Amino acid sequence: MSFLVSEELSFRIPVELSYETRDPYAVRLTFHLPGDAPVTWAFGRELLVDGVVAPCGDGDVRIAPTGDKMFDEVLITLQVSTDQAMFRAGVAPLVAFLDRTDKLVPLGQERALADFDASLDETLDRILAEEQSAG
């Protein structure tokens, strides 16, 4: 991705895209800025899906297609209070990443996985509590 310092100045930075089935609604972008500790942003996977084709997001994360060619690049804006950082990324790697996440958990099926994980956590907590009280 490119970190946009101004309209005239940008530089490439390594960014890791990650997705975990234990948090099926979110994707994570970890930015490795020179001289700083990595910074990770988690936001809705659906926001990234939608932002590839149309401007979306009205909170801390906004994503919009940009560039001369349709579906060529996206602009990702991250905001904390009055500070914001803007990044430009190619659509192709984002779509490939989203395709891999969809193979793990199809869009729209997140709730089934989230419910299973919550039930599993609840059951394991109950079993551990019973074992501790019995011992």
Rank of each mutant, 00 (worst) to 15 (best):
G108K: 04
L48G: 08
D99V: 05
V5K: 10
D83S: 14
D72I: 02
L94V: 02
S10L: 01
G44W: 02
S18R: 03
G35W: 01
L9P: 02
R28M: 07
A92H: 11
V39T: 10
D121P: 00
V15C: 00
V39Y: 08
A129C: 05
D58L: 05
S2W: 14
D23Y: 12
R100Q: 08
L120P: 00
A129N: 12
F43K: 06
T21F: 09
T123H: 11
F87P: 05
A129V: 07
L47S: 14
M70W: 10
E130V: 04
I13G: 00
A26W: 01
A54Q: 15
R62W: 06
D121Q: 14
S10D: 11
G90T: 07
D83N: 13
T40C: 01
V95D: 04
G90H: 14
L9G: 01
D72A: 14
A85K: 08
S119D: 15
G67K: 01
P65Q: 07
E131F: 07
A64M: 03
P106I: 06
L4M: 14
C56P: 09
R12S: 14
L107W: 09
T40E: 13
F31M: 01
V15L: 01
D50F: 02
P14Q: 00
G57T: 04
D72C: 08
F71H: 15
F87H: 00
D102G: 07
D115V: 07
R88I: 08
S119V: 07
I76M: 12
T101L: 03
E131D: 10
G67I: 08
F31E: 04
S2Q: 15
K69P: 01
L113S: 02
V80C: 12
T21H: 01
D72G: 14
L104S: 05
L124E: 10
S18Q: 00
F31W: 01
L9R: 11
D60Q: 10
A89I: 07
L78I: 12
V80N: 11
G44Y: 06
